[in-house]
Amino acid sequence: MSIKKIAEKAGVSTATVSRVLNNPEYKCSSEELREKIWQIARELNYLPNEAARNLKKGIIDTGQKIWYIDILMTRTGSMEADPFFSELLRIIESEIHKQRCILTRVWHQPIFSNDRKCQIENIDKILEEMEQGNEQKSDGLIIIGKCNDNVLKKLSAKYRGIVSVNRNSTNYLVDEVICDGMRIAATAVEYLIQLGHRKIGYVGDCHNESRYKGYQDTLFMYNIDMDINYVIETEHTEAEGYAVMESLIQRSDVPTAIYCANDMIAIGMLKCLNRYKNRYYVPSIISSDDIEEAQYTRPMLTTVRLPKEEMGKFALYLLLDRLNGGHKGIVRTELEGKLIIRESCTPVENTNRLEYYI
């Protein structure tokens, strides 16, 4: 199926389709249009006309097998819920395209990242509903985000290969590419400690979450008592971050610094501080991911950058290696996060000198 056919169905130019399919950083006019183009490509089982290109280059077709690949998003229910995961998805989609594979389906199942809900809900029924109406059986699956162990085991019986790309290890249940959440949290919290903070809070998921464990362990390593009143369990959204800060500014005992599990929580907190302009409580805020919006907050957000491009590419390489018989044992590839120092953190003695606005 040609790019021209996709362009006709999407109502855009062939150039736009080509850019969307090949460049994860291409600034499409809207996220809805980008998803529409990919949806049409999936429905048509679009495959780059590599044979024609190779013929022009004088390359003989080696008869490489075409693999069908699914993607499962477990942290988000929509494209807009967390830009980190949508950015990572775009990278993997484009890499699947470049490697001459066919992307069959993209599922969003946030329930699979919640162990408590997975114990209550009928997981088998959800998995069956996901497969309904899909005649093409896929070879491999890439899971983006944390996934319940029981779900992982059930999915492993359905695919020749699975790769998890995440911040939480699967403990060798499947192949994985991770940027370890414990080390991410340690990097963030150690930076706050270097700035003199000892009243350090945590906002984010706490249940079976590596970033929360990293936060705890780092405080313990520096002989800092963890105050449970400074730990707030919440979903990883901007709205939740806003609500948490709205609650904090009304307290009498508050942390001087906060580590947020992701950038979206931190951005919500900054927007709340901007609205109330409460100069009596201006905490240092640090997070992790380094989504695009983190560069445009005021003050600009200090965060731990995750290597999204490498995570996405290695995930597909690892999956294809297994599908092609390159390895049989479980493989774990770990990448390093990088501290990006901007403006949202300050030495503890200067805490009240920052101004927040977005």
Results as ranks from 00 to 15, higher is better:
R105E: 07
L55A: 13
M73R: 05
W67M: 11
T74C: 06
Y68S: 10
T74R: 07
L44H: 05
W67A: 04
S78C: 10
L89D: 03
A51L: 10
D61L: 04
E93Q: 14
F85C: 12
K56A: 13
R90N: 15
I37C: 04
L89H: 03
Q99N: 09
T104S: 08
E50I: 02
N49Y: 03
G77A: 15
L47G: 02
I60R: 14
I66D: 05
Q99T: 12
Y68W: 12
A52G: 07
V106T: 11
Q99G: 07
D61M: 06
A81F: 09
H97A: 05
L55D: 02
I66A: 07
S86Q: 09
E50F: 04
Y46I: 01
A52M: 08
L47R: 04
E87Q: 14
R34M: 12
L47I: 10
K65V: 11
I96A: 04
H97W: 13
K57R: 14
A52P: 02
I96E: 02
L55M: 13
K65D: 04
S78N: 11
H97I: 04
L33F: 03
R90C: 13
I66P: 07
S78E: 06
R42D: 00
H97Y: 08
L44Y: 04
E80H: 08
I102P: 01
E93T: 08
Q39L: 14
M73G: 01
A52W: 02
A41D: 09
L33A: 09
K56R: 15
R53C: 02
I91G: 00
T104I: 10
P83T: 12
R53N: 06
I40Q: 08
L47P: 06
N45T: 11
M79K: 07
N49A: 06
G58F: 10
A41T: 10
Q39I: 01
I71K: 00
I66H: 11
D61C: 04
L55N: 05
A52R: 12
I71R: 03
K65C: 05
A81M: 13
A41M: 10
F84P: 02
E95R: 14
D61G: 08
A41Y: 04
R53A: 15
I40C: 07
L55P: 02
S86H: 09
K36E: 15
I66N: 11
L88D: 01
Q39A: 14
I71N: 00
